[in-house]
């Protein structure tokens, strides 16, 4: 297909002013925040997924947030809700490309998993894409405790409910 050739970028001959100034060597530190800290610690220490509930808006935010983004209320300690580790599949996709656009050796399935009123974005495994359906129940599979570092990927993946 001729038009595909035009999609290709011609980046081979780009004239660089200096190799020295080619990169942007800045590394950032990210603070998970008050809500993020507890959310990630509960995953790491207790294999639990927590949200925060705004009683006025009747929304349970997952991942947990310190404040309600609808009504601007601060969701204090008593608003923490254990939403369980079983969610429903809100949507899914099969990623055929690596982050840099190169083809993946093994495509990965990525799901948007509804927990409380929020979504977690994570891999779906132990299933083929053909067997997935929007609305089906999926369970979180955690990494072994010793491998958990306080990150979203302490959850290894989600799998369809057996």
């Amino acid at each position: 297909m001729a038009f595909r050739e035009r999609i290709e970028k011609n980046t081979g001959n780009i004239f660089r002013s200096s190799e020295e100034g080619k990169y942007f060597p800045v590394v950032s530190r990210y603070t998970a925040g008050v809500a993020g800290q507890k959310f990630l610690e509960e995953i790491k220490e207790n294999e639990k997924i927590f949200g925060t509930r705004c009683s006025k808006c009747e929304i349970t935010f997952v991942p947990a947030k310190l404040y309600c983004e609808r009504c601007f209320a601060r969701m204090e300690k008593e608003h923490w809700v254990d939403v369980g580790t079983r969610g429903t599949l809100y949507s899914y996709t099969v990623a055929y490309e690596e982050k840099d656009g190169s083809p993946k050796e093994t495509p990965s399935i990525i799901g948007a998993i509804k927990l409380g009123d929020g979504l977690l974005f994570h891999w779906i495994k132990e299933s083929s894409a053909d067997d997935l359906e929007i609305g089906m129940e999926v369970d979180a599979v955690f990494k072994p405790k010793g491998e958990r570092r306080g990150s979203l990927v302490d959850i290894d993946y989600f799998k369809p409910k057996k």
């Binding site: 990630l40 991942p63 990623a95 490309e97 982050k99 990525i110 979203l152």
Partner: peptide, 9 residues
């Protein structure tokens, strides 16, 4: 915190 750890496109 919630998207980038997947290292996906």
């Amino acid at each position: 915190t919630y998207i980038r750890p997947l290292k996906e496109h």
